[in-house]
């Protein structure tokens, strides 16, 4: 079962939107997808149309001692997602299940999802949830901003990811919010392509106002602006990831 952790190279580069976009694109390609929000800010739910005041989620269920899978939502026949859920500040850290780094990996394995179902993990930058996600994942997609600092961040990030035992050819990268009109963006892409070669997605995700507007409307981009460049880019990225995942499924 392919488990893809999506993480930003730094904060605020659009990795949550990337999870929503990829989940939509894969389900449009006819693949079964489960998206899990592991970020404490609990924002993925907005991309799937949940209300701001909706506080339920796997974390909240765990804290209340309930079965966390009851917090899952089904947005279409093939697409399910689990919000993080919100707890009062003082409750954070009281969920002892997460102390076992393999908790998520075991839980996902015990779910008995079908073999070709894809799991997307919206991975935070810090905390126990990050450890859980990277321990469970067998593929990682790193979202890079089109800035020169991306080139600098990669080295350390890669060392961290490799320490979780993820195969180097399964560490994949994509540029997000890429604006070809700006010289800097173009130069950064050139540099990154040199550094990462095959592991950088062949097409970047363009900076497209439709993504922000879709979130403002609490819709997926594919529903809000199906003819936008960003929607097209997510589809292309999803296709590329499918190919990489299927190629990487063969043991080396």
């Amino acid at each position: 079962m392919p488990i893809l952790a999506v993480t930003g190279a730094k904060g605020g580069v659009g990795s949550t939107a990337m999870v929503a976009g990829l989940a939509g694109a894969w389900s449009r390609h006819g693949k079964a997808v489960l998206a899990l929000d592991l970020c404490r800010q609990n924002l993925l739910r907005l991309h799937f149309g949940l209300d701001w005041h909706e506080r339920d989620g796997w974390y909240a269920r765990l804290a209340a001692g309930q079965d966390w899978t009851d917090a899952a939502w089904r947005t279409s026949e093939r697409l399910g997602f689990v919000p993080h859920g919100q707890l009062p500040r003082e409750w954070v850290g009281l969920v002892y299940a997460l102390d076992d780094t393999h908790w998520l990996a075991d839980e996902l394995a015990s779910l008995a999802l079908s073999g070709d179902c894809r799991v997307l993990l919206d991975t935070p930058l810090h905390g126990r949830e990050r450890v859980q996600a990277l321990t469970a994942a067998n593929h990682v997609l790193v979202v890079l901003p089109p800035e020169p600092l991306s080139c600098g961040l990669i080295e350390e990030l890669e060392a961290e990811l490799l320490s979780y035992g993820i195969r180097p050819d399964r560490l994949l990268y994509t540029l997000n919010r890429f604006d070809p009109v700006r010289q800097l963006d173009r130069d950064v892409e050139l540099l990154l392509r040199e550094m990462l070669a095959e592991r950088l997605a062949p097409l970047p995700i363009h900076r497209d106002e439709a993504v922000r507007e879709a979130l403002a409307m609490r819709q997926q981009v594919a529903d809000y602006a199906p003819q936008s460049q960003a929607c097209d880019d997510y589809l292309q990225l999803a296709t590329w990831l499918s190919i990489r995942i299927e190629a990487g499924a063969k043991p080396r």
Binding site: P180, V181, R207, D208, E209, S228, Q229
Partner: peptide
């Protein structure tokens, strides 16, 4: 090609 509109939207 990608068309970049003045309002920040892009169209393929």
């Amino acid at each position: 090609l990608t068309l970049h509109l003045p309002d920040g939207k892009c169209l393929p």
